[in-house]
Design a protein around this nucleic acid. Sequence first.
DNA 1: AGGATCCGTAACCACCCGGTTACCCATCTC
DNA 2: GAGATGGGTAACCGGGTGGTTACGGATCCT
Lengths: 110, 110
Amino acid sequence: MPPLDPFVAVADPTRRAILDRLRRGEAPVAAIAADFAMSRPAVSKHLRVLREARLVRDRPGGADGRQRVYALTAEPLREVLEWTAAYQTFWRATLGTLKRHVEARRAEDA
Amino acid sequence: MPPLDPFVAVADPTRRAILDRLRRGEAPVAAIAADFAMSRPAVSKHLRVLREARLVRDRPGGADGRQRVYALTAEPLREVLEWTAAYQTFWRATLGTLKRHVEARRAEDA
DNA sequence: AGGATCCGTAACCACCCGGTTACCCATCTC
DNA sequence: GAGATGGGTAACCGGGTGGTTACGGATCCT
């Protein structure tokens, strides 16, 4: 199974919110689902997508054997960060358009 | 019209490739479409999505009045970069899991 | 043992998305 | 003026997505 494209996994705001939640520490499904106004199976499906993108890891709950504890494994976001970072140079140029282009030229010449 | 979520705009690999293309300079539609194995209307639709996300700007072509010249306006990617950057700390921790957590704790204490 | 709880999956649904072909308008070219 | 060309839109289509309810399996509780 090839991992799911992280850009796709992160396109949904609910899934981003889940990852944001997991930044504050691992959590069982019930705790995650409590933050959202949707049914628990819907959250389960989002978690599956995040799993397929390798953005979360799930562990059988230690204390309560029924729980599954999800934890953040953010490494696939590196690709997103690196792709996006390549554009950082450009949005300074958006208004004047010239300033950064000029600086880039100057860098080439140097 | 509220702008389209940049995360959604960037979720499609074709759209990312179009933006990559525009990083090398503005271009008319035909030049962009030449890079892809799909019909020109399909490219037009992708360009529309990028427009709705404010990621490209389109200008009437100067020399040939039939052309529309597209240019990159990358600023909406700032949101993507900033959200993703917040996770950079975590993927170092993925293997050992502990190292960064420890450092974060240390930062809290300090 | 019996019932409640945690979680996943199945089946279903409305809608959106990415692609196609067909068509149209505007502009350039001869 | 006639035809070719650049590019957008419309209509359509298959497949995927995000939500729901219903169900089932495993574990905990008493």
